[in-house]
Design a protein around this nucleic acid. Structure first.
Lengths: 179, 179
DNA sequence: CTTCGATCGTGCGGAATTCGCAGGAGTAGA
DNA sequence: TCTACTCCTGCGAATTCCGCACGATCGAAG
């Protein structure tokens, strides 16, 4: 996973002549630290995952090589991935659903078991009337039925499920930080 | 919908002789009917969004130029986007939630209204005990509270909402087709 | 049957990008 | 001060991207 913090590297390398505010980048108190420059790089790549390193460098004030090294590290650490995303409905997967799951016992163990299923593309532990929310992608109704009723409910600890079959995907964005 | 942000990147500035705008017909509802080769290309880019066209060409049995033209078309049509995706928690957004929404009246109108909000990164119409499922990304608790109680419930047609605050993201995949 | 017109693939240079590596500068600890 | 690290920069060389011209295929119209 990406939880390795790697000894807080965010010391804000002051380049040569530019004086960027060193006091700005630590707004989040959580463990994995990203400085403002890495955030800006991610932002660029959220707009276009294939944007050249030199263009990113101009936007964030870094050389091409520096951007390339930072991107590589972000990928290696698992902080981000650069991938093609699609609307599954246009790619041949005709049934999608969000499934709310109630668990007795170890929630995380159930989450791990569900994560191991290839049809589950999104697994998150939640607070509220569900313990887990799972998004599943299937090829057709039979497949969907099989996954929900046979596979998910067969996982030890799953008490009950409630399904929300997707009718239409209205929005899908990956541009947090761009606001 | 989501296609407009990506398509605008390089479509306009090339048009050498016949700059016609096919992006208009990319309204969803019409399946662009992807063949096996385009599917294979998408699959390659789901593994690595920056993979060179030549390498993809070798994998799918096409020339570099053909791959490039197909990828450009897929982007223009909004079938796929090539972007960086992250776990928002590591990028400074500390509160995420899935919100189930019940609607009276025009569900799609409500969906459009919610899609216009930048905090809503994922909006889908569903069958089941919710009419809409909305994933929202916020910076902190105050922001989350504001979005749910003030903004979402203020949308005309929203009858009720139920929130599921994210505790931990366990899985996030973009590799349908790779199985 | 022939001819447009549109779509799709290939090949090819030139420009742009990526890649690897050798420094230099700042920082922390012994 | 010296060493060990980290991070950035600069610079060739290899690779990749990009525009463009041309050929093949297919369906519809003449």
């Amino acid at each position: 996973m990406h939880s390795d913090l790697v000894a807080s590297r965010s010391a804000e390398q002051k380049g040569s002549r530019e004086s960027r505010e060193p006091s700005r980048e630590s707004r989040n108190g959580s463990s994995p630290q990203l400085d403002a420059v890495s955030l800006a790089i991610i932002e660029q790549l959220q707009e276009d995952g294939r944007r050249p390193y030199a263009a990113i460098g101009k936007a964030v004030g870094l050389s091409e090589a520096a951007v390339r090294q930072r991107v590589q590290k972000l990928l290696d650490q698992g902080v981000m991935q650069i991938v093609a995303v699609t609307d599954p409905l246009t790619v041949g997967f005709r049934r999608q659903a969000m499934v709310g799951v109630n668990v007795e016992g170890d929630v995380e163990a159930v989450a791990d078991a569900l994560s191991a299923m290839s049809e589950c593309e999104y697994v998150v532990m939640t607070a509220g009337s569900f313990d887990l929310m799972v998004e599943i992608v299937c090829e057709d109704d039979d497949h969907l039925l099989d996954v929900i009723n046979k596979r998910i409910r067969a996982v030890p600890g799953v008490r009950s499920t409630e399904s929300f079959v997707y009718l239409k995907l209205k929005k899908q964005t990956y541009m947090w930080g761009t606001r």
